[in-house]
Design a protein around this nucleic acid. Sequence first.
DNA 1: TATTAATCGAGACGGTACGTCGAGTCTTTAC
DNA 2: GTAAAGACTCGACGTACCGTCTCGATTAATA
Lengths: 194, 194, 194, 194
Amino acid sequence: MTKQTRKQGPKRSEESRAAILEGTREELAENGWRKFSVDSVAKRAHASKQTIYRWWPSVGTMCVDSGLELLPPQGRQGRDPIERLTDIFLPLEIACRAGHGHAVLRASLIAAADDQAAGEYWRKWMNDTLRMPLRNLLAELTAKRIVRRDWDIDTAMQIMLGGFWHRLVFTRAPITEGYIETQAKLLLTLFAPE
Amino acid sequence: MTKQTRKQGPKRSEESRAAILEGTREELAENGWRKFSVDSVAKRAHASKQTIYRWWPSVGTMCVDSGLELLPPQGRQGRDPIERLTDIFLPLEIACRAGHGHAVLRASLIAAADDQAAGEYWRKWMNDTLRMPLRNLLAELTAKRIVRRDWDIDTAMQIMLGGFWHRLVFTRAPITEGYIETQAKLLLTLFAPE
Amino acid sequence: MTKQTRKQGPKRSEESRAAILEGTREELAENGWRKFSVDSVAKRAHASKQTIYRWWPSVGTMCVDSGLELLPPQGRQGRDPIERLTDIFLPLEIACRAGHGHAVLRASLIAAADDQAAGEYWRKWMNDTLRMPLRNLLAELTAKRIVRRDWDIDTAMQIMLGGFWHRLVFTRAPITEGYIETQAKLLLTLFAPE
Amino acid sequence: MTKQTRKQGPKRSEESRAAILEGTREELAENGWRKFSVDSVAKRAHASKQTIYRWWPSVGTMCVDSGLELLPPQGRQGRDPIERLTDIFLPLEIACRAGHGHAVLRASLIAAADDQAAGEYWRKWMNDTLRMPLRNLLAELTAKRIVRRDWDIDTAMQIMLGGFWHRLVFTRAPITEGYIETQAKLLLTLFAPE
DNA sequence: TATTAATCGAGACGGTACGTCGAGTCTTTAC
DNA sequence: GTAAAGACTCGACGTACCGTCTCGATTAATA
């Protein structure tokens, strides 16, 4: 009969968590990454700084978190290859086209580029959510002879997202509707068996 | 022979200017963009903050300046198309492969992405130094029927630099020797007349 | 029994307050009023400048505060008129004769003269602690016919402190032991009924 | 025929000297001693800082200088003792009653109290211009039996100026017309032979 | 049911940095 | 030689944030 160490006291406040991430998004959209201020977020969210530091290992991680939260869940209804390919990446397009999503995702990405811990967090998410599903789908399509055998996952990612990052981060040009679908079609064309 | 009203007083100290930009590079390489500190740069360069603020309109601009100063002048000796294409972009590769160039250019780029003024400065440089020369060269090669008629300058830039930015900023992977030449060859292959 | 809304959060640190005032005194004694530096005080006291600006409305006020803190409490044991008169002003003499008290009080006084807010603070203290008690005592002694009827409070203050200020501030001559008692005797002589 | 070493170049610019002292007065009147700024004076006077530092050994000295310049020359027409006494000190009253004289003299005095070099300069002026003439006059009046033998110069100065300093520096009360004459009469009364 | 431990807001704390201002020195050009 | 103009280093200004800590109140599982 081992005595279990159970946690006492109240659980993490979901209300507070959501307010902090929303405050983070507003702050990022307004001020960007360098001028981002934890104090401001705390004030916006009517939260204590202690609460922020309790739940996030670093500021950069919190920023990435707040960006990822903007992404809607990936769809799973696609039937043909183009639709299934689009399903994987479409959340990015959707998030960028809504409200201050463009600015928030840009700043999140900049945080990931500038901050070590945030970068690792971001790359793990990207690998799990985008790269692996893409790899699996391409492998399946290869077996079905819809895609040629000698594809390379890095090139594929570059085709799907290269221009996306560039617009988002450097030119700040808006992401046009259908952007992801266009890239999906391009990918399948380039990867079509000879 | 109009008598010009000449400004009195001492001239800008070149010594100080150089020390400040070198200090900026060290600071960027060590601390990145968000933790970049003007105080530290001033201390490193034995310069006054006043001098920094006197000559640069914003911190971001100074960071971009310090990054651009790393780039060697473009070569002009290329004869065949691949060499001439390579000449335009090679300074980027060279700077990234020397000393802390990779980290400095990364941080400069992040500054340009995060800061409005720095971004404009950076884009102007990129347009004047890379994009326009590339456009002119491609136009010339089109006339000589080495390049097909329907090329697009944005696609061309994306081919030459898309992967470069991605490695530099997101994966932090080193830029391998011959990277630019490889992209130049790829571009000419893709743009070859049918 | 109304439930009071109590302020949350930590209370003011007494330790920090004392260290800041001591640092202020050292700084005033060494550098005087014009060269007085808040940065130095913060460093001496291992305190943050924020803490200083949080609790004092102006630098001058802090300087006056630090000077007044040097004064021991007024004695209340005097029985005869001279002793009771001396009791009121003796703390000034005591403070001036100990350690760097002379320099600190001089600089405090200069601060009060040069700075509007500090001046008001100083005059309020002087009125409450010196002038009113003196007035009350003189009134009482008038009733007892120890002091003539037509005394003037400003003249009385001038007799007690005129030379004191002059020595303290302008000639920087030391305040000799018994100075206040001497002036007390002089006052009672001049104010004696004809 | 020895070749004399003559000073070359232009002589000190009287125009500049006057403008600097006037600028100093304005600055002192507006900002007091602690916030007094040499840069501001240079700007006001359209003078170079170099010129200021060339001709005055310290900032404090310049402030005292600018205050003393406000004083009109002492009169010499007095015939009876009261008039001759008044002649010595009247310039102070006149200066305090004109324009921003009160504020300027206050700040000069504070500078003299706070700054070592300025203090010595001030005390030398006071001794030469006020104290010695007063001593000489009292000696003469003693010989004429208008003044008792056992007078003390410090007490005399204290009577003439004690309240004056106090009003000027601490209470900032205006100096009323006839103040000096009143004190002169008081002095002669107190010092009258028994 | 009372105890206890974790959570929350508020905010004070020692620090570092911000962007500006001023001190005192030095350099350049004009007279 | 003197002057105006102004760049230079250094240091201080008063403010904003950082990340840590303390306080009193609240909340939910444990005893």
